[in-house]
């Protein structure tokens, strides 16, 4: 094994560790926010508006309403994590089985599934978010259900393509010759072999969901005030981009690091799950 390849592999492990740390940080912030925040993140204090970093006991300063930025970041992590979990959860729970089924039953059932998926795909996520918000009242949940549903076709299509590849292999034929049924083949052969692509796609979708939440929050179609979310903070901060850039910078950094963390973790997991990568000599 060449030195270059080993170096690349070390780097990959290293990036998985870094990704894990970043994700752990978001989780930690979420957990911490339930038990402790320096201030009530929604407490409006006109006397402490736009306090600079490190002044008046506010580590990262306050916003135009005098709310403590650090406390808002901590509580905002909840929304971020929830947003990712709901959106990716919905798209995975619906999309993966649908894709596998479409790939394994390539005839009419597969066609029906994929055409349904095309219809969902053609339906704009924003319109869905508006409809859900109109029906149930805008919240983090409606926004993320909308994002989740609109990513289902992407995951389903990916799962189907990967499944078709696996179904064309001789080890699936061997499993059928061994008398194993479709359920066994899906569980023992298809899922483990398509998992790497799905994990990478899920980590990308996680990042996109966080960004989408921020965008929808900006449009008022997601997390409602006064509940803080990183997207909302970014939105609120834009009016002070020149006078108090930190109001945009901190949530911006938080979003960027969280998205990066999930992507690095996804890449790392893919390699960890592959026996060929795991024990290359």
């Amino acid at each position: 094994m060449s030195a270059a390849v080993i170096a690349v592999r070390r780097l990959r492990n290293w990036s998985a560790v870094l990704g894990g740390l970043l994700v752990a940080l978001v989780v930690l912030m979420t957990l911490l926010s339930f038990v402790w925040t320096p201030y009530d993140p929604t407490f409006v204090n006109a006397n402490a508006a736009l306090v600079g970093m490190g002044h008046g006991g506010h580590l990262l300063g306050t916003d135009a309403y005098g709310r403590d930025t650090f406390s808002q970041l901590l509580v905002g992590a909840r929304v971020t994590l929830l947003a990712g979990i709901i959106a990716v959860g919905i798209s995975a729970v619906v999309g993966v089985p649908a894709g596998i089924l479409a790939g394994m039953r390539a005839r009419w059932l597969g066609e029906v599934i994929m055409r349904c998926s095309d219809i969902v795909f053609a339906f704009p996520a924003l319109l869905l978010a508006i409809l859900l918000a109109a029906g149930f009242g805008a919240s983090t949940w409606t926004a993320m259900v909308a994002i989740g549903i609109s990513t289902v076709p992407i995951i389903a299509r990916l799962a189907r393509a990967a499944t078709l590849q696996v179904m064309a292999t001789e080890y699936v034929l061997a499993a059928r010759a061994a008398g194993r049924n479709g359920w066994w083949i899906a569980r023992r052969h298809v899922l483990p072999n398509i998992a790497p692509v799905l994990i990478v796609q899920a980590s990308v979708a996680f990042g996109l969901a966080i960004l989408a939440e921020a965008a929808l929050a900006y449009l008022g179609l997601s997390t409602q005030p006064p509940t803080p979310s990183w997207g909302r903070m970014l939105h609120d901060g834009q009016g002070y981009l020149f006078s108090a850039p930190r109001l945009s910078i901190w949530p911006g950094i938080a979003i960027a690091l969280a998205v990066l963390g999930f992507n690095l973790l996804g890449d790392g997991l893919r390699d960890l799950l592959d026996p060929r990568q795991r024990d290359r000599r």
């Binding site: 292999t169 001789e170 080890y171 023992r188 052969h189 483990p192 592959d274």
Partner: peptide
Amino acid sequence: MSSLDPRM
């Protein structure tokens, strides 16, 4: 190669 599942 193709007739053995690489992950088993």
